[in-house]
Design a protein around this nucleic acid. Structure first.
Length: 241
DNA sequence: TGCAGTGTTGCTTC
DNA sequence: CGAAGCAACACTGC
């Protein structure tokens, strides 16, 4: 391609790689995709990582490869092949709904007033609203469950019916939760890995996600799992009202 | 052993 | 507008 990378940024769940000539490479990792970066040798049609962690099966599903001058490579590995890559002129990619249709980013500072206005505009379950990227960008299934537990809000509760205290609680909890998870390197409950192949550690400290039948860390009642809007929700039936 | 479930999203149908 | 069902795909765990 002969291009240079000027910067890398993120919008919601989209990774944006800004290239020379005003080009933009967008990567969405979806369910099982993950970017790997390193100075690896390619052998026998698969990544021949020099360390055990790079020999994990996660390295055997490379669908996209950027080779850099000097020998390092950026690879997209995705066993389920849901990942999405877009490449083109920056303004054209930016105009696509993948970016232009996103709501405010959860890691940006959203005012409490804006947060309340957007959330209460829907009667759908609060969990569904938090996951809807056109309402807010960046929250996925794990952290929707986690933030609702932290805020003592039942995921089924219609968004428009949330009390001010509940709205404020979610608003206050969501950024610190995401920052904490980023610090721990994400959850890595299935396929997500750091660019060097390492696993994140958030799963070890998670509160309710995929903890059905375990005791609520707050009130000891058993965590339940229930489908909400085609996604599994994990919550405490006792302290999340 | 088979089948539900899955860090996600989008399309169709009603 | 929305909910529900289904699709993309391959693997894990019960």
């Amino acid at each position: 391609m002969g291009a240079k990378i000027f910067s890398v940024s993120r919008r919601g769940k989209n990774i944006l790689i800004h290239l020379s000539d005003n080009r933009l490479l967008l990567v969405h990792q979806k369910m099982t995709g993950h970017l790997l970066f390193g100075r690896w040798a390619l052998g026998a049609g698969r990544w021949a990582g020099s360390t055990p962690k790079l020999r994990e099966k996660t390295n055997n599903y490379i669908h996209f490869l950027l080779k850099f001058k000097g020998g390092s490579m950026l690879a997209l590995s995705d066993v389920r092949k849901f990942s999405k890559i877009l490449f083109g002129k920056s303004d054209e990619i930016s105009a696509l709904p993948d970016l232009s249709g996103l709501g405010p980013d959860f890691l940006q500072k959203i005012s409490l007033a804006d947060f309340k206005r957007i959330v209460t505009s829907s009667r759908r379950p609060i969990k569904t609203v938090l996951l809807d990227q056109t309402f807010f960008a960046g929250l996925g299934n794990i952290y929707a469950d986690e933030v609702l537990w932290l805020s003592r809000v039942n995921p089924k509760k219609p968004a428009a019916s949330l009390k001010n205290t509940e709205l404020k609680s979610i608003w206050e909890n969501v950024r610190p939760l995401l920052i904490k998870s980023i610090r721990l390197g994400g959850a890595s409950m299935s396929d997500y890995r750091h660019p060097d192949g390492a696993r994140g550690k958030y799963a070890e400290v998670r509160l309710v996600y995929r903890q059905e039948g375990e005791h609520c860390p707050r009130c000891r009642v058993k965590i339940v799992r229930q489908k909400i809007g085609a996604r599994s929700a994990h919550f405490c039936p006792s302290c999340q009202k």
